[in-house]
Simulated assay, not measured.
Amino acid sequence: MSTAAATRRTFPVLADLIGVNSRQGARVRDVVLTIIGTAFITVAGYITIPLPFTPVPISLATFAVLLTGAALGPLRGSASAGLYLVLGLVGVPLFAHGASGWAFSSFGYIVGYVVAALIVGALARRRSDRSVWSTLGLAAVGSLTIYAFGVPWLAAFAGIDLAAAFALGVLPFLIGDAVKIVAMAGLLPATWRIVDRAGERS
């Protein structure tokens, strides 16, 4: 195998371990997992803590998006986040505090969810969710991706410069993000260790 081919090689994500016996079964599995991912993001997004000094609330949705991307892989993970985005855009009250539409300060973060799930899922397919250190990197990249979309939207929506948007939309959340990243770095590799041990026993 060439070096280039080895670099392009991908590996299973956790959702791939749900075995099916046919192509039709695989499609049904993928649809069900996508819907479950959307539901997970929705429920997590409702768990918020408003902060009086910023229009962006603390939310568990970021953690849910990153975990969904890693567990489901790039296509199913981004589809879950994309379905969440589209349903909210057309008026389903899925976003934090039962919001919908696009005209609010944190909408850019939700757009970033789709891209972050795609990137995190792609990294997971290259086994970046198998060790603590690589999972730390995976989760950090996903978080930065969300900020890359959320901060410019916040600046434009609130009519402030990027420095002010950074102060309002990033700095208050760094400690919480660090906790989420560490939690992922513990959860995903531990899950893979359990899976590997179960495989050895079977």
Rank of each mutant, 00 (worst) to 15 (best):
Y109H: 04
I119K: 04
V151C: 08
G19S: 14
A155S: 13
I41W: 09
Y84W: 10
G169C: 02
L66A: 07
L67A: 15
S59N: 13
G98S: 11
P57H: 15
G199K: 06
G19R: 13
Q24K: 14
A5P: 00
G45Q: 03
A61K: 11
R23K: 15
P57E: 15
A183T: 12
R126F: 03
Q24L: 15
D161G: 12
V120N: 10
R125P: 09
I18R: 00
T34S: 14
S78H: 15
G69I: 03
D30Q: 07
Y109D: 06
A5K: 07
M1H: 05
L118G: 06
G137E: 05
L118V: 01
A5G: 00
L171C: 02
A81I: 13
I36H: 09
A124G: 05
A116Q: 08
A64T: 01
G37S: 08
V132I: 07
T135R: 02
R193I: 01
A39L: 14
R201M: 12
R130D: 01
L187F: 15
G69E: 03
G45M: 04
A163H: 08
G150Q: 08
G108K: 01
A167Y: 03
Q24S: 15
R193N: 03
F63L: 15
R126T: 09
T62H: 14
F104V: 07
M184G: 11
L60G: 13
T7D: 11
F63R: 02
E200P: 00
S78M: 15
A81G: 14
R193D: 09
V132W: 09
I58A: 13
S78L: 14
L162I: 11
L136E: 06
G101W: 13
A64R: 04
A165N: 04
G121F: 06
F173Q: 03
L174T: 11
T145E: 03
G25L: 10
A64L: 02
G169E: 04
N21M: 00
A190Q: 00
R29A: 12
A139I: 03
A167M: 09
L144Y: 02
V43N: 04
S106Q: 10
G142D: 09
L60F: 15
V90D: 14
G121T: 04
P55C: 10
A178S: 14
L168Y: 06
S100L: 09
V31M: 14
G108P: 01
Y113S: 05
R127E: 05
I160V: 14
L75P: 10
A79F: 14
A158W: 03
G186N: 00
T135F: 02
L188G: 02
T68P: 12
G91S: 11
L72A: 11
F53C: 00
V86P: 04
V32I: 13
N21K: 08
I18N: 01
V151A: 08
R126Y: 03
L72W: 10
I110N: 05
L168G: 12
A185R: 02
L87A: 15
R23Y: 12
T48A: 13
G112E: 07
D129C: 05
K180D: 05
L67Q: 05
I47K: 10
Y113M: 08
L168S: 13
I110M: 04
R197H: 06
T34K: 12
L162D: 06
Q24M: 12
F157Q: 05
D177I: 01
A44C: 13
